[in-house]
């Protein structure tokens, strides 16, 4: 029997994620890479890499679904759906009892209210990147630290400071001020994580916080933010093994569902032109 495959591509503001699933929703390949500069979204390279990893070619894909901020014009995708719906679908595939999902990506924060695997409502941060991955990147740079070390360092905190702003610019001033007052680094970093967590908690409260609460996106790799978020929300936080992939996995699963629905109705699934070219940001 011929295996059939589905690809999901999530073009985030910072990272591009491609996942190839088989019909049993098993991951055959996944690649996470930088999205690239505004005018040259190298989505095609990430897609090619995933295809090589899976030992497949683009024609083997029954459906390719694009999602994420850059989803609008992916020349090799068959359809585009928002990251809101795709994240909800992807997260529910790992955590079927999820009720609230929080995704903190490179430049925005999303809260998703999910019931029975379906997205019911959402909140999103504004176009300001306060309290997102970018905020942590800039902060790490100011502190002379590696982004991936922030979480571990913050765990050593004994008396975390209070940071009043998640504005990337204002928070840097506060950080510098605290450091000049000899506040230990781990207390400063823990304070920054707390500031992110309390901002997100305020945002998602409208959606009602009840378990299971799942945290995804690049920032979910930071153990310090996971801990701070659990404290702010007053409940345990679940994080998938690879928190960056939920959007791409959700996209691939929705593509699979559309394909199977079409097949069941005796219809042919509509695919696009599939030009494996760079994605321009907008039409």
């Amino acid at each position: 029997m011929v295996r059939i495959y589905f690809a999901g591509i999530d073009l985030g503001s910072t990272m591009t994620k491609v996942v190839i699933l088989d019909e049993d929703e098993q991951v055959c390949a996944y690649v996470v890479n930088h999205t690239g500069a505004e005018h040259r979204r190298l989505a095609n390279k990430v897609m090619e890499e995933a295809l090589i990893q899976a030992g497949l070619c683009i024609e083997d894909m029954s459906f390719i679904m694009a999602t994420g901020y850059g989803r609008i014009n992916v020349p090799f995708a068959d359809k585009q759906i928002t990251e809101l719906t795709c994240h909800a679908r992807g997260i529910a595939s790992f955590f079927p009892n999820v009720k609230l999902a929080i995704d903190i990506g490179g430049q925005d924060v999303k809260g998703l209210k999910i019931r029975n695997g379906k997205l019911l409502d959402f909140v999103m941060s504004d176009k300001c990147a306060a309290g997102t991955g970018r905020f942590l990147e800039v902060t790490a740079e100011t502190l002379g630290l590696k982004l991936e070390d922030l979480g571990r360092i913050s765990l050593g905190s004994t008396q975390k400071i209070s940071v009043s702003s998640t504005c990337t610019v204002f928070a840097q001033q506060e950080v510098v001020n605290h450091l000049s007052n000899d506040v230990p680094l781990e207390d400063v970093v823990a304070g920054l994580h707390d500031a992110i967590a309390s901002r997100v908690a305020r945002m998602v409260r409208r959606l009602k916080v009840e378990p299971d609460v799942v945290f995804t996106g690049g920032v979910a790799k930071n153990i310090g933010v996971v801990k701070a978020l659990a404290e702010s929300l007053g409940c345990p936080i679940l994080v998938p093994e690879e928190p960056l992939l939920s959007g791409a996995i959700g996209a691939a699963i929705i593509g699979k569902e559309l394909t199977f629905k079409a097949l069941a109705n005796g219809e042919t699934i509509q695919t696009g032109e599939r030009r494996l070219e760079e994605a321009t940001f907008f039409k």
């Binding site: 901020y69 759906i81 928002t82 990251e83 809101l84 719906t85 925005d108 997205l119 019911l120 409502d121 959402f122 999103m124 504004d126 176009k127 907008f282």
Partner: peptide
């Protein structure tokens, strides 16, 4: 005009719901 791109995601997400 610049504010419209992020709003598109909200509207499209709403329509998907």
């Amino acid at each position: 005009e610049g504010a419209l791109a992020p709003l598109r995601t909200r509207v499209q997400g709403f329509l998907e719901i």
